[in-house]
Design a protein around this nucleic acid. Structure first.
Ligand SMILES: [Mn+2]
Ligand SMILES: [Mn+2]
Ligand SMILES: [Zn+2]
Ligand SMILES: [Zn+2]
Lengths: 136, 136
DNA sequence: ACTTTATTGCAACTTAGTTGCGTGAACTGT
DNA sequence: ACAGTTCACGCAACTAAGTTGCAATAAAGT
């Protein structure tokens, strides 16, 4: 379990440190993207510095083990593993800021060939901003 | 032209000041949302303070003449006038941060009744994040 | 075990966003 | 046109997210 995480970190060319394992394990156990603050709070029992966890998140992202996405007003990080489907839409509550995955939504460009080409190409991250069920 | 803007500001219960008129005129002439920094730079010829323009944006938003939307890493403001179609998707470049309107895109929820109700209700702001044509 | 080099902890810094407060400008009513 | 009232502005300070320099420390290769 954790051994597999260590292997993936090492295979990515990064040294295996306790904080990196903890960060990767946390995000693999969570079914939604977390931001830097949420990660530090989730690992508050330990003594790792904000900057350390920040660099862990950035290093793991650059190594391809996480994905960083701008959700709402902060950057969020999501595990990038074979299980979790790769690019899928996300929902952001404009009231409380909570984030959840919304893989069931599909986006259709118009027939007119206008706007950025990446939309037609399908290489875009989709976000839906609105009130969550708790905030309506 | 500007007289109409002044009327709309006054009708909204706000005092007509030079900076408010300038901010509202700028955003009515621009076909995409601007953030606070872009507004201050566009009006840099004048001497208005950042805080003044910030409060102008917030006041005009609260009055319903602008709409504030979290695009990319900053808040953006868009004119909310009868001409410009109301809620429409926006495209954000993940590389250079530029924003453009993408009214031609439609979003379809799945048949399964899962996820936040506002998606099915259609009361969500749609955002597409990807590389713009200049950044590919 | 030793050497090399990546990583950590700490503190400082940048930028976006926000607010308190005294001065000054916009409206209201005469 | 004028005075009084209230709102808005300018300035400076502040918070929070994100980021970085540097010396101390720990991981990997031998
Ligand atoms: Mn997700
Ligand atoms: Mn728009
Ligand atoms: Zn909510
Ligand atoms: Zn771009």
């Amino acid at each position: 379990m954790i051994g597999a995480l260590k292997d993936r970190i090492r295979s990515a060319g990064l040294r295996v440190t306790a904080s990196r394992v903890a960060v990767l394990e946390l995000l693999n156990q969570t079914d939604r993207p977390l931001n830097h603050l949420e990660v530090t709070e989730s690992l508050a029992h330990s003594t790792w510095d904000r900057a350390t966890l920040y660099r862990n998140l950035m290093d793991l992202t650059e190594a391809g083990l996480l994905e960083r996405v701008s959700l709402g007003s902060t950057w969020h990080f999501e595990a990038q593993d074979p299980d979790h489907a790769s690019a899928h839409p996300h929902f952001v509550c404009t009231e409380c800021g909570t984030v959840e995955c919304a893989p069931e939504v599909t986006v259709t460009p118009s027939k007119k060939r206008i706007g950025p080409k990446s939309i037609r190409r399908g290489t875009v991250q989709v976000q839906l901003h609105g009130l969550c069920d708790d905030c309506v």
